[in-house]
């Protein structure tokens, strides 16, 4: 197919929108790992839960925005429950056990969803004002994709403000650095961890919510996303928000262009990109030395 500049711009926007989902998903993963030292193997599962939660909420109230907020809150609360009742018991054991618990959860949960909602995918409509596309000259600009890019900017700004300008954000950053010192200052670190886990899971849910209209909402939609969010943080450097952003945007472009030019290779390309980055810069683009 011929590559005109209109098509190139369209592919860039598609890639940015996809990248926005990766960025939001991976920043949640990165926060959880930075704070709790837990690799959340169930991250894609919470992404899937976000998509299903927004489907339920929309069919209950009809408004996309209310549904979006309530879906994030519900999944974050579920994540908090998971952390308090199950994950917390495994802190202090070998680091592989929290990882394996999350893995078990990621096997368990999609089947629960299958039991409740059936195997057939659910359809989440685009919100009304973002349906269709805007035309600028010969350019086609899909409104929802552009909304995603803006939303990513807003979320990242809010996250930055939260982490850098609020007390709880400061405590989270401090606990990421040195949890013992923070607890010596009289702060209940275990509660901070719960908040951090809920924040990370909430971001995964948000990614699921905004992806829901674009992809098919099926019980196993999260499995692939877990792997892809891993690729993002490996490229960007685990535990670094900047890395998650850059890695996510990069990956979005790779997927967008490769699936347009060489559809056969679309699924393989992201892993090849990861392998190349690992050879050139083993700790990831923004990874801290020694932590990886």
């Amino acid at each position: 197919m011929e590559l005109t500049w209109e098509i190139i711009i369209l592919q860039i926007i598609m890639g940015l929108a996809l990248g926005a989902i990766y960025v939001i998903l991976a920043s949640g993963l990165s926060i959880i790992f930075g704070l709790l030292d837990v690799l959340n193997f169930a991250h894609g599962t919470f992404y899937m839960l976000g998509a299903y939660a927004v489907f339920v909420a929309i069919s209950l109230c009809g408004n996309f925005w209310i549904a979006m907020v309530s879906a994030i809150v519900i999944v974050a609360l579920l994540g908090g429950l998971f952390e308090i009742t199950l994950l917390k018991r495994l802190y202090g054991t070998e680091p592989i056990y929290p990882l394996l618990l999350c893995f078990g959860f990621s096997i368990f949960m999609p089947d629960v969803i299958k039991l409740i909602f059936g195997l057939v995918g659910k359809v989440v409509e685009y919100p009304k004002i973002f349906q269709g596309a805007a035309f600028v000259g010969t350019l086609i600009l899909p409104k929802y994709r552009i909304f995603l890019v803006v939303l990513m900017g807003v979320v990242l700004l809010a996250l930055w403000l939260f982490m850098n300008k609020t007390d709880i954000g400061m405590i989270i950053r401090a606990a990421t650095r040195d949890r013992l010192m923070v607890s010596c200052l009289g702060i209940n670190v275990s509660r901070v961890w719960t908040v951090g886990f809920m924040l990370g899971v909430g971001l995964a849910a948000l990614a699921g919510v905004i992806a829901a209209p674009m992809v098919q909402t099926i019980p196993n939609m999260g499995d692939e996303m877990t792997v892809e969010s891993f690729v993002v943080v490996v490229i960007g450097g685990l535990g670094s928000l900047g890395g998650a952003v850059l890695g996510g945007l990069l990956l979005g472009q790779v997927v967008s262009f490769v699936s347009f030019l060489y559809p056969d290779w679309s699924n393989v390309a992201i892993f090849m990109a990861m392998a190349v980055i690992l050879v050139v810069r083993p700790r990831g683009l923004f990874g801290e030395e020694g932590r990886a």
Binding site: D264, F271, M274, A275, L278, R291
Partner: peptide, 27 residues
């Protein structure tokens, strides 16, 4: 690619490379 990476990193990279072989074979 990954032998020098620590625990969680090795898990992620090995999973990703495993998926790469899956998709290579598939398509």
């Amino acid at each position: 690619l990954a032998i020098k990476r620590k625990g969680a990193y090795f898990a992620m990279i090995s999973l990703a490379i495993g998926q790469m072989f899956f998709f290579l074979t598939l398509s």
